[in-house]
């Protein structure tokens, strides 16, 4: 973990009062107490991201909370998704995994048919 001084030295153009404001806004979760904040690696990366969004990408302070909220939701979804994949991978027998893949494939082709894509011309339906 690093201090707020070290943080501001490592990110060009970052000023301390801005970081303190972000902590107040709960955009950044620092540890420690006001005046003696400590930052984990993930906090440093997030500070860098917010700094970049504000300066280089010109995302204004009114819009920034919305952007962060959407990003947090996106990453939350991706974490759940990858956790789910790990869990399924551990828990399911090979046969069931194939069934899941086949079901997904079925849903996907059902959707692409619904969306107006044609199935390959060599395939014809012959219901017995």
């Amino acid at each position: 973990m690093i201090t707020i001084e070290a943080l501001c030295r490592s990110v060009v153009g970052l000023d301390r009062s801005a970081v303190e404001r972000w902590i107040e806004n709960a955009w950044i979760q620092a540890e420690g107490t006001p005046g003696r904040y400590l930052f984990r690696e993930i906090d440093v990366a997030r500070v860098r991201l917010i700094h970049e969004l504000r300066t280089e990408l010109a995302v204004g302070d009114e819009v920034l909370p919305m952007v962060l909220s959407l990003l947090d939701q996106l990453y939350e979804t991706r974490r759940r998704y990858s956790l789910l994949c790990v869990a399924l991978n551990q828990a399911l027998p090979e046969e069931t995994k194939l069934k899941v893949l086949s079901a997904l494939e079925g849903l996907r082709s059902a959707r692409s048919v619904a969306a107006g894509h044609r199935s390959p011309p060599s395939t014809e339906d012959y219901a017995e």
């Binding site: 979760q29 984990r40 690696e41 993930i42 906090d43 990366a45 997030r46 860098r48 991201l49 909220s69 990003l71 947090d72 939701q73 990453y75 939350e76 991706r78 974490r79 990858s82």
Partner: peptide, 15 residues
């Protein structure tokens, strides 16, 4: 940030 946010510690910024 994405390298951390996708991992376990990413839950630190959970909505």
């Amino acid at each position: 940030y994405r390298g951390f946010a996708e991992g376990r510690e990413g839950a630190r910024y959970r909505p």
